[in-house]
Structures are given as C-alpha cells and as structure tokens.
Amino acid sequence: TLFEALYDYEARTEDDLSFHKGEKFQILNSSEGDWWEVRSLTTGETGYIPSPYLAPV
C-alpha cells in the first residue's frame, strides 16, 4: 500500500525524512508506533516520518 503526505514536514533529527504535501511513500516498517520508516517515491530517500501526516493512496 502506498501512502501520500497530507502536510509538509521538516526533519528534526538525522533519522527523520523531510517531505512535501502530496509526496508518495512506500512503507518499510510501521511497527515502531507513530513513526514509520518509509522510502520516498519522489527522492528515493529513506527515513522516519510521523504516520499522522500520511493517508493511504
């Protein structure tokens, strides 16, 4: 399942991933609570992002 960003987000740590509203992601790991490890389909980068900022496509 692909997810889309509902809002912009600016990374706060080196493990976070900055992204823009509308960017699409592949979920790599969603078992860590509200922070999911994802791969951006736009940039190819991986990192953690807050799951409340995402919605299924």
Rank of each mutant, 00 (worst) to 15 (best):
S31T: 13
L17P: 03
K21G: 02
D8A: 06
E45P: 00
E4C: 07
P50G: 06
V57A: 09
G47R: 03
K21R: 11
E14H: 12
D16S: 15
L41K: 03
F19D: 00
P56T: 06
F25S: 00
L6V: 08
Y7Q: 11
G47Q: 03
D8H: 05
T46E: 09
W35E: 05
S51P: 10
T43V: 00
A5L: 09
G47S: 02
Y53R: 01
P50D: 04
E14T: 10
Y53D: 03
G22L: 02
I27H: 03
W36K: 01
Y7I: 11
P56A: 10
D34S: 10
H20Q: 13
N29K: 07
N29D: 12
E23L: 01
H20E: 08
A11D: 02
L17N: 02
F19H: 02
T46N: 05
L2S: 04
L41P: 04
I49P: 00
L28K: 02
I27M: 06
W35H: 09
S40E: 03
R12Q: 14
Q26P: 00
E10G: 06
E45G: 08
K24M: 13
E4W: 09
E37V: 10
R39D: 01
W36E: 01
A11T: 05
I49Q: 00
S51E: 04
L2Q: 07
A5W: 01
L54S: 03
T42I: 10
E14F: 09
Y9E: 01
R12W: 08
R12S: 13
P56D: 06
Y53M: 13
T13S: 13
I49V: 15
A5N: 01
F19I: 09
H20Y: 12
P52C: 14
S30A: 12
G22A: 04
E45S: 11
D34F: 15
S40R: 13
S40A: 08
N29S: 11
P52V: 15
E32R: 15
T46R: 10
G47V: 03
R12Y: 09
D8I: 01
F19W: 05
E32H: 13
D15A: 13
P56E: 09
T1V: 13
A55D: 05
W36G: 00
A55L: 08
K24P: 03
V38M: 04
S31K: 11
Q26K: 06
L28Q: 02
Y53N: 05
A5M: 03
T13A: 12
R12A: 12
Y53L: 13
P50C: 11
L41C: 12
I27W: 05
V57T: 09
Y48R: 14
E4H: 07
S30H: 10
V57W: 09
Y48H: 09
T1D: 12
L54C: 03
K21W: 04
L6F: 04
V57L: 10
E10P: 05
W35D: 05
F3I: 03
F3V: 07
A55Y: 10
K21H: 05
E14V: 10
W36P: 00
E37Y: 15
E45H: 12
D34N: 09
D8W: 04
G33L: 11
S31Y: 09
W35Y: 12
L6S: 03
L41Y: 06
R12F: 10
R39F: 09
Y7N: 07
A11L: 02
E10S: 11
W35N: 08
Y7W: 12
Y9R: 05
P52M: 15
G33P: 14
S31H: 10
T42P: 01
